[in-house]
Design a binder for these strands. Structure first.
Lengths: 419, 419
DNA sequence: CCACTTCGTTGAGGAGCCGATCAAAAGTCG
DNA sequence: CGACTTTTGATCGGCTCCTCAACGAAGTGG
């Protein structure tokens, strides 16, 4: 019953209005104060004051004037690129990576460090993560920006507040104190760091500027050896009681199905995981099944065969697509999403997977027209989790611009009024 | 991307604080202004002003003084019973009903009108609903209260804004303009009326004062001929894009399972619906399967047999419980709820159903300890949907007490200060 | 009876928004 | 070309609503 836990913050309206302008600027690009006033419903006086505030914090800058039209031209304002940035840290089986996004939503840079993560053990991997982070911190500073936080995308269960990795079978991690480890290695504050499930962060990325942009209700599916889901409801992630929501890989869809590594039978990921795909479309000695190969190259190989019309590959994809659709239908019945975004390896083969999924869903969902759900492929592919991590880290600023200290940004704020 | 669609409401802090006090009063019962100030984090001055405001609207009243303790005794304040009320309207196969709840969460009265709903057709049923509503409106007025809204619990798909019943197979309804029909019959405003899926409203009821009280993340399961779910995430219902979320009854859990009335095989409700239970525990000529019998009596019969140790009944319940657990495990993996509340007929037989569900879930959920999910029976049983409808209608006041006009409530407001 | 404590009200002050007003910087038109 | 119109953005007074500090009120304990 604690919907409103704290006292209603008295400076809350100021913050909410700063957020409102920031969001408008991110959507519209360059806007004059007068346009901001109309779009936001605030008075011109208030908008002037708010824009001055944002300028003092270095978050916006002048951007010329409006052309044409009668009357005095407006002074355009835009988000300052390469100012406040968020970092998404990647934790994969064969590499770690860092992705930087700025306020405008632009991805500024990506770094990767190859590493056999399961073999190296958590301590060594945290060293590498800290190294990747330090690298991009330097790059961002060189561009005149600063980093407000970093979020790690973990292929496994992470506790609610993002401090500890509970269980990540693919990495062979269990109870790893991620946040403490990174804070100790970098000397940065604890609350600089967060962590979340890779499917959740990928969903954030698609929501931010991908296949689910602007959708309040959708489901993202990540496809790798395992299968995970990130679900948005009302524009927010469904996280669950302890943050473990979206564990779709081990739904039992067929009581008589194949055995799963988790010890049970008929788990969805035995039917649609990368293992199932490779098993269906390649013989054991096929180069596609070489474990040393990275996902992108594998998918390129499978793709090439599908394009060339290889019967075995096409049959395999159709079979996987149908099994995928059976599970997606469950998700659609449960969440009634506006879209289901197929990510991970699924996104590399949309021409052969999307259609079978679509028809299976149409046949299995109770609500007419699949309840309005469209099936689409991710636009961000394997980069979605890290991108989402960066977007998530940026939320600190986007949700409360007042956390950015007021400092000197004179070279960018000429002619902008202090409140 | 429209998280903040409107301008930040400038009077928002006032409203938020009124809501804060109202919620505190609902939880704590009788509280002094000083205690309210401490609990809410607001200043004593503000609390005095807000309480005066609520008193003028007739929502709170004096309730004596604090006993014992040093210093000046506090003047207790409490929510005024039988003041603002919400109505939940029930739409079942064999009756329609009305339930009234007041601000304190107390159910003031219930009315039922027997009626063969599928046979009567929507027009006749809307007449009866309007009649039931008119009856309780009178009763409430006689107690010095007033009704702020009514929400209809529909066993089927309702559109997002609660105006139209899209599809309710059990009622044989399709595209029924519920809101318009009720507004026309009663002369009340359109926005007086709402409608929602019965599982959603039952979940609201359990969240409000039932088995899921205070839980932000839980799933409610309704059990009747069909099976439906209402899921809470972050303290809010998961409704989905068009409001059709929670349609769990037709999840395909066994590709080779029995045929369902929807034309497919292996739907969950063929395994755990009331039909499956009766089929498993009674021969065709068993009186329990008499369609004229109401759900309560049926369950009483089955219950009596289970208590007496009837082997066939016990076997049937164990089989149903296991099948129920298989589906609940899917929900737990997806939503990671703090609790799964078994409602409808399941709630009438908890001694035999809860344990099989619990063990099945423990075996099938990936996260340790079922991700913290407990399995509990509903406390409200078949009354949950109507109760939730009333609670939902009350949200209008609880979310914005300022919608209640300031009128004369002098007999109750002596000594209470105007702002 | 008098300190002491706690409660609720009052008044001054500040944060923040809005409407009105005004100067500035264009186009438009006679 | 100069006056008029239009639009922008800053400024000012006023309003709402919160907080802090001070104060009288109403009890208890010595």
């Amino acid at each position: 019953m604690l919907r409103y836990p704290g006292p209603a913050d008295r400076t809350g309206s100021r913050r909410a209005n700063l957020v409102l302008l920031l969001r408008t600027l991110r959507e519209q690009g360059q806007v004059s104060r007068a346009q901001l006033a109309v779009h936001s419903g605030l008075s011109k006086a208030t908008v002037s004051s708010l824009v001055g505030d944002l300028a003092q914090r270095g978050l916006v800058r002048p951007a010329g004037t409006t052309a044409g039209g009668q009357g005095r031209p407006g002074e355009l304002v835009e988000l300052r690129p390469s100012s406040a940035c968020g970092v998404g840290l990647d934790l994969n089986v064969e590499h770690v990576g860092a992705t930087v996004m700025d306020l405008t939503g632009e991805v500024l840079l990506r770094r990767q460090i190859a590493c056999d993560v399961p073999a190296s053990g958590p301590e060594r991997v945290l060293d590498l993560l800290a190294e990747a982070l330090a690298g991009v911190l330097g790059d961002v500073q060189a561009r005149g920006g600063w980093v407000v936080g970093a979020t790690v995308a973990v292929p496994g269960l992470v506790d609610t507040d993002g401090a500890v990795v509970r269980f990540a079978p693919r990495l062979r991690w269990r109870e790893v104190a991620l946040r403490n480890g990174l804070a100790a290695r970098t000397g940065l504050a604890l609350d600089f760091f967060g962590a979340d499930n890779d499917a959740n962060l990928a969903a954030i990325a698609e929501h931010h500027a991908g296949a689910a942009a602007g959708l309040d209700d959708f489901v993202y599916l990540t496809g790798d050896h395992g299968v995970g889901a990130g679900a948005f409801s009302r524009g927010e992630l469904v996280r669950g009681h302890l943050g473990y929501a979206g564990e779709v890989g081990h739904m039992t869809l067929d009581p008589l199905g194949p055995w799963c590594s988790c010890g049970r039978r008929g788990c969805w990921e035995t039917q649609v995981g990368l293992g199932a795909l490779l098993h269906a479309c390649a013989t054991p000695d096929d180069p596609v099944r070489d474990p040393a190969l990275d996902p992108d190259s594998r998918m390129a190989l499978v793709r090439a065969r599908a394009v060339s019309g290889d019967r075995r590959t096409l049959d395999a994809l159709h079979q996987i697509g149908a099994a995928l659709g059976a599970g997606v239908a469950v998700l659609v019945n449960l969440f009634n999403p506006a879209a289901v975004v197929l990510g991970g390896y699924f996104a590399a083969l949309p021409e052969w997977l999307v259609e079978p999924v679509r028809s299976e869903v149409a046949a299995r969902v109770l609500a007419e027209g699949a309840g309005g759900a469209t099936i689409v492929a991710s636009r961000l592919g394997f980069q979605a989790p890290a991108t989402g991590g960066a977007a998530h880290a940026l939320r600190r600023v986007l949700d409360d611009p007042a956390t950015v200290p007021i400092e000197e940004h004179t070279e960018h704020t000429e002619g902008m009024v202090a409140p």
